[in-house]
Design a protein around this nucleic acid. Structure first.
Length: 343
DNA sequence: TCAGATGATTTTGC
DNA sequence: GCAAAATCATCTGA
């Protein structure tokens, strides 16, 4: 059964009209003899066709009369059904979009940065971590920390205010369109489903605008992060005492310059830096020592002597004259050389 | 201003 | 996941 046939069958069911009867004067005449409902449908169609030939006032009056016609709901119902099964059904296939992965990524990032979602220590925690990693002084890091937090709060405020504006605009526009369609549904066949689809289309358009807002916000956060928190930018040399403590450990463990987790923690504590900074320092030191032993020999000797003196002092204090100076035994080259490589 | 030093990050291999 | 190696970005002293 095709759509046209269905429509006519629908009308038949409602008013007794048969397929092929519409537009056929003989059939109309025949239907007139069959009863009032058939005549109604013919009348409605005739009036619709004739409405364009009339003046505006006449057309308005006619439109009103048609709106009040008792057969109108049935006719609109059938026309809506036909629309559902043709144009709208094709659109419907395209509307089932999966969630956009880009939006999900942006949402996750904004959430992680503490821009979207409930206000939390996300950004400030990141700031604190970065400040700690940068190894800056407490005063410096706290200033940068509060500055970063203030800027992040500003971004958050702008983001939420813009988001609210978009949502309000979306809601207003949706209501407007829905009212318009409901109003129009009195004069042309518009089903509730069609209105729902239109609302979905509007929401999609607004969500694409929201995505742009989210993208811009993410960019702003990234710029802020790189400006305030990029550890490379905030690199500070360790203080002299910290470097000495690390060097002492390195040269006194030259055979195996790989401090355990406990040793790293202790060194970090002594130097006032983080464990990962200790790891970085040892990583850099190992590779740079290995690459250019000659350059580091003087330094190695210095620390070897220092270690020996310290050990001797400890021994003297403990009345033990002959304790070993360094525990070196292979692996990395021994430190006690002259700068030209001689023992 | 610039070269070298240095701390941090990224890439690579195990 | 850890370490080596390469690289980056900043600091520092001349």
């Amino acid at each position: 059964m095709d759509d046209q046939t269905r429509m006519l069958t629908g009308l038949t069911g409602l008013g007794g009209l048969q397929p092929g009867d519409v537009g056929d004067p003989d059939s109309v005449r025949k239907q007139q003899s069959l009863g009032q409902p058939q005549q109604d449908i013919g009348d409605i169609l005739q009036q619709i066709m004739a409405i364009t030939d009339e003046s505006l006032d006449e057309a308005q009056a006619r439109k009103h009369a048609l709106n009040c016609h008792r057969m109108k709901p049935a006719l609109f119902s059938v026309l809506c059904e036909i629309k559902e099964k043709t144009v709208l059904s094709i659109r419907g296939v395209q509307e089932e979009d999966p969630p956009d992965p880009q939006i999900m990524r942006l949402d996750n990032m904004l959430l992680a940065e503490g821009v979207s979602g409930p206000e939390k220590g996300g950004g400030s925690a990141a700031a604190a971590a970065a400040a700690a990693a940068a190894g800056g002084s407490p005063t410096d890091s706290s200033i940068e920390h509060s500055d970063y937090r203030a800027k992040l709060a500003q971004i958050r405020q702008i983001y939420h205010s813009e988001l609210e504006k978009y949502e309000q605009a979306c809601s207003e526009f949706t209501n407007h369109v829905m009212n318009l369609l409901r109003e129009q549904s009195r004069t042309r066949p518009i089903s509730p489903k069609e209105i729902e689809r239109m609302v979905a289309i509007i929401h999609r358009k607004f969500s694409s605008i929201q995505m742009q807002l989210k993208q811009s916000t993410c960019e702003a956060v990234m710029i802020l992060r790189s400006r305030f928190l990029d550890a490379r930018r905030k690199r500070r040399n360790f203080n002299k005492q910290a470097t000495e403590v690390l060097n002492e450990y390195f040269y006194s463990h030259l055979s195996n310059p790989y401090p355990s987790e406990e040793a790293k923690e202790e060194l970090a504590k002594k130097c006032g830096i983080t464990v990962s900074q200790v790891s970085n320092w040892f990583g850099n030191k190992r590779i740079r020592y290995k690459k250019n032993i000659g350059k580091f020999q003087e330094e190695a000797n210095l620390y070897a002597v220092k270690t020996a003196v310290d050990a001797a002092n400890v021994s003297a204090q403990a009345s033990q004259a002959n304790s070993p100076a360094t525990p070196n035994s292979g692996g990395y080259p021994a430190p006690c050389y002259t700068p030209d490589g001689r023992l």
